[in-house]
Design a protein around this nucleic acid. Sequence first.
DNA 1: GTCTATACCTGGATAGAC
DNA 2: GTCTATCCAGGTATAGAC
Lengths: 189, 189
Amino acid sequence: MDARERLIETARELLWERGYVGTSPKAIQQRSGAGQGSMYHHFRGKSDLARAAIDRSAADMRDRAEAEFGRPGTALERISSYLRLERRVLAGCPVGRLTQDPDVMGDPQLREPVERTFDWLTDRLTGMLADGRRDGEFDAALDPAATAAMLVAVVQGGYVLARASNSPEAYSRAIAGAIGLLTGHARPA
Amino acid sequence: MDARERLIETARELLWERGYVGTSPKAIQQRSGAGQGSMYHHFRGKSDLARAAIDRSAADMRDRAEAEFGRPGTALERISSYLRLERRVLAGCPVGRLTQDPDVMGDPQLREPVERTFDWLTDRLTGMLADGRRDGEFDAALDPAATAAMLVAVVQGGYVLARASNSPEAYSRAIAGAIGLLTGHARPA
DNA sequence: GTCTATACCTGGATAGAC
DNA sequence: GTCTATCCAGGTATAGAC
């Protein structure tokens, strides 16, 4: 792995652990083993490197989700397996945590991949829920867009609960609660 | 309002806007109009002041929730009115955002009020859901603890979605989705 | 491509005068 | 109680040598 690559991967780790404001160029250099000059040769500065790191984390998140969405099975099955994906719960969401960072959300370049990822995810779930409803899998009263937003929110909020209690259980409980309600609503009236 | 009070209120604002790592003592002093010496007279340092600010924000959050929980009405009504409480959605949750801050979660003194607040909230909702289920308001299959965790997560995740899309609509959609499912499950089989 | 030197600002805190 | 002076480490970046 060359220096450029190590810098990006290390930046991803540190952004995940400490956010953008909490991550200094020096910390990235030290952990990656790249020197000052090397970093500023490959990237114009902190935000340029961060953009590369965020792009990659966002693509990663979409790929992992899409792998579940593309499986065979009913909409409920595919959504449930997505929700139960193994996640580093206590670490939080590498993309979602960036929404709390004023310097990320204040910079259009850094914000763009974050915004796009959540739009994509919500749209994808909305489509699956609409298909499931059409096929009689869900109640006709189910609102696909609202339910999709709720599901994405449960995952993101699950991370918050898990970190607050320092235990992954809180995350699992929230997911189980969501699947329970979704299953209940799946009974046509 | 005396200097001590202004320091606490200003610290609350800045912690809300920028988190703990993103907030410097100097920024607090400048915005509050208190000098260096004043701040270090009233507080031992940054983390001591932060503790006072976090305690107050946590108490605030509990008070606002309890005001809704204590209203008359069914469990579903009280929970719905809590979920629909007017919130500064784009600002995020003043307590929840701290869970993303490694320096807060790494310090037992700062972490404690955050952890306690989410424990309290989840327990309170669990109790109301259990009461509602006992009274036939919800399906017997509803799991109070899991559903409570899911509701807290939807609120916290709703903030994430709203900030990602820079619009409060995403928050409202997630809440509407949760209430929709909760209402659906409320029909006994 | 990578290194070292340098620069300037901010973060977080202490000391002592008033 | 509040002010100013001072301190040292770290953040972020540029310059120029190798």
